[in-house]
Amino acid sequence: MGQKLVGILLNAAMHRGVPRLKTGQESLESYEEAAAAYGLTPCFLKLSDIDTGSGYSIAYVKGPNGYRSAVIPTPDAIHNRAIYDPGSQGVERILRSGVQVYNTCNRYGKDQIHGLLEQNEGLRGLLPATSAGLAGLKEMMDSYSDLILKPCRGSIGQGVMRLSRNSPGHWTWSYLPGGSNSWASTAVHQDALPRALRARLASAPYLVQERIPLAELGGRPFDLRVTVQRGWGGEWQVTGLFAKRAAPGGFVSNIARGGEALDSIFVLEQAFSGPAAAGIRMSVLAHSLSIARELEKNLPGLADIGLDMGITGKGRIYFIECNGRDQRYGFRKAGLAGTWKESYRKPMAYARYLLDHPAQHNSY
């Protein structure tokens, strides 16, 4: 395998931090190690520096004195780690030039993902009851006593709310006030929902779902983050998983909202008996692969996702949501340094596979 270039596409703010090694949760060192293992040199790009006309780009490449900007031939394979909506003109321009961009789009609406999975009869049983908008909320309040409201385009738990019934017609509304990480709660009546709640639902598309009665550890609910990636050979593989436990008194497990990352084996064995824990883990892995294979049918370029999977106290498994740009740092926080490194190696292995088998990209 000869040394070849692989592009890592970053958003402009993160890209500016490359020469100062200030890239947030993205580990430049891990990219370098992973790429080297497959005979690749990583080049860190931003969209506006890719010139499809000339076939050259400006990128940060590591040298003896750190990262320096250089003009390079545009890599034939680019791993997208920036956030772009479906149909981004900039990304489409690169694809038309013949460059293989994987994780082409990594921002999908929760409603879109739910709709795609709902088409698969074998996966429907993993989906919580779901509706949308204010009309859907009123309908769901008649049928369920505990609801989660999630913005279709939200991330890291932003905008998530909960409605829990106390008695007929009387509910508690829990939400995060703007700029706060402390949950607020207020009593509401089903027939007179507060203007602020209605305004939130009117300001952006929302999913309304039955709240899954998640299994708990130490009185705090948890779910599982499963990283599913393509590596060498192009097939989907589960790289690893960890548990996310909600902060005390919270109901969302997002690490950015005070959640805690823990080893999934430890958490499952604490919450369930040994044989049950092992069975749940194996089922979660199998379901995660099935979900990835179903989504790829309609989402071109999909190659690297994080799935949130919930488990009830009785061991039933649910799909919660799909993250198109998986934040891998949870593995490190959970003490799973080897898996964290592997989550960087898989995308580089896939890049090498695409470079050596360029026709394969169009078949996925």
Results as ranks from 00 to 15, higher is better:
residue 117 L to V: 05
residue 147 L to V: 15
residue 68 R to V: 13
residue 204 A to I: 05
residue 327 Q to M: 12
residue 316 R to D: 12
residue 174 S to P: 11
residue 20 R to C: 10
residue 49 D to I: 04
residue 69 S to Q: 14
residue 159 G to V: 02
residue 149 L to V: 07
residue 146 D to L: 09
residue 144 Y to G: 02
residue 254 N to A: 11
residue 50 I to L: 06
residue 273 S to Y: 05
residue 310 G to Y: 04
residue 323 N to Y: 00
residue 301 G to Y: 13
residue 96 R to H: 06
residue 23 T to W: 07
residue 159 G to R: 03
residue 229 Q to Y: 05
residue 1 M to D: 11
residue 227 T to Q: 07
residue 129 A to D: 09
residue 154 G to A: 02
residue 267 V to G: 00
residue 300 P to N: 00
residue 184 A to F: 06
residue 301 G to N: 05
residue 232 W to A: 12
residue 36 A to F: 00
residue 211 R to V: 06
residue 84 Y to F: 14
residue 332 R to V: 04
residue 227 T to A: 00
residue 5 L to I: 09
residue 194 P to R: 12
residue 51 D to C: 11
residue 257 R to W: 00
residue 231 G to H: 03
residue 51 D to E: 12
residue 6 V to G: 03
residue 311 I to D: 01
residue 34 A to W: 09
residue 280 I to R: 08
residue 100 Q to R: 14
residue 229 Q to C: 13
residue 274 G to T: 13
residue 293 R to M: 07
residue 318 Y to N: 02
residue 329 Y to M: 10
residue 362 N to Q: 02
residue 172 T to C: 13
residue 94 I to S: 10
residue 334 A to F: 12
residue 171 W to G: 04
residue 202 A to L: 13
residue 117 L to W: 08
residue 92 E to T: 11
residue 347 P to I: 08
residue 94 I to G: 14
residue 114 H to V: 02
residue 284 V to Q: 11
residue 23 T to I: 14
residue 97 S to W: 06
residue 42 P to G: 04
residue 319 F to D: 03
residue 41 T to D: 06
residue 80 N to W: 02
residue 338 G to P: 08
residue 323 N to V: 05
residue 174 S to H: 10
residue 190 Q to F: 06
residue 191 D to K: 13
residue 178 G to S: 14
residue 6 V to D: 03
residue 163 L to C: 12
residue 211 R to E: 15
residue 174 S to W: 06
residue 10 L to G: 02
residue 87 G to H: 12
residue 281 R to I: 00
residue 326 D to H: 13
residue 228 V to I: 05
residue 142 D to K: 14
residue 261 A to W: 12
residue 267 V to P: 01
residue 293 R to Q: 14
residue 260 E to M: 06
residue 207 L to R: 00
residue 25 Q to R: 13
residue 278 A to P: 03
residue 36 A to H: 03
residue 279 G to M: 15
residue 360 Q to W: 10
residue 7 G to S: 07
residue 208 V to T: 04
residue 6 V to T: 13
residue 318 Y to A: 06
